[in-house]
Design a binder for these strands. Structure first.
Lengths: 151, 151
DNA sequence: ATAGATGCAAAAACTTTGCGAAGCC
DNA sequence: GGCTTCGCAAAGTTTTTGCATCTAT
């Protein structure tokens, strides 16, 4: 099954609808390997649907992220970047220009090796973040009660 | 040599001055293991220097970061969090409340092992970002010319 | 004495939200 | 037809900047 149909089905499962705008946000993102920001994506989609608003792009990116169809790369300064490739890989971000490129890795443990292999980049560091639920939140199964500090 | 003196020396080397505000931002951050946001740090420092402004806290955090004395944890949604521990370690961030805790690792390759060891957390994922200079920026040694997309 | 830092306030950068109109199923 | 999504505009959140004043060296 094509990726587009797959995502359409996922959207329908959630009671959502596949609008022209939503499809385009998805398609344009998938056609790029540049990990665009929401603003950049907005500019690109606007070439095809001139009336689209930034809010729609943000809303659709969030929805597609919630469905697990896009990655949010909110590392580093500046705006969040998006990635339609959700299979395991990590990223290299330029500390000067903000450019982000893919680094294929099979496993997190390969990250150090990957760094060594990026010979055309000057790798100066590597950051790792594990994520999940802390003990308090894991135990607090009531989703209504957000612990202090939540957003 | 004490950490405080070490940092003071670094600041002086850059032609900077160790003001009351700067020292406090540093000291308060170092006294916490909660990885506060700039706002939280501002509130805490304000207890000791009631006239300090948020701008000063931001400016000092940026300077200390440039000196390599604090880490910026700008993972995830919401404001950037700061960390005075710059020795190698990684972080676990709660996807519900935003809490960030330290996870000591000797090497990036240990990340997967660390995940397994965080038995009181419910780890659902792990992200890795390498950083450094991309080929274009590495070659462009003229710091005046920022490539497109830079910030 | 003087370059660098501060405090204030305004602005910038990025993202979310409210609401009435329009469109998908 | 009904509920979702859209476009617009306004507001929210986080961070940066301009400028006159102050201060560490």
């Amino acid at each position: 099954m094509a990726r587009a149909e797959e995502i359409t089905k996922l959207v329908h499962q959630q009671g959502g609808r596949m609008t022209r705008q939503r499809r385009l946000v998805m398609e344009v993102l998938a056609s790029l390997d540049t990990h665009p920001t929401a603003q950049e994506l907005y500019e690109l989609v606007r070439e095809r649907v001139p009336t689209i608003s930034p809010a729609t792009v943000y809303r659709n990116l969030k929805l597609l992220h919630d469905l697990g169809c896009v990655l949010e790369l909110d590392y580093g300064p500046g705006p969040t970047r998006y990635d339609a490739t959700v299979t395991d890989h990590c990223h290299a971000r330029c500390t000067r220009c903000g450019r982000v490129v893919d680094v294929p890795v099979v496993d997190v443990a390969d990250a150090a090796t990957a760094a060594a292999a990026m010979s055309d980049w000057l790798i100066t560091g590597c950051r790792v973040e594990l994520y999940g639920l802390c003990p308090k939140c894991r135990d607090a199964n009531n989703r209504k009660t957000q612990p202090e500090g939540a957003r």
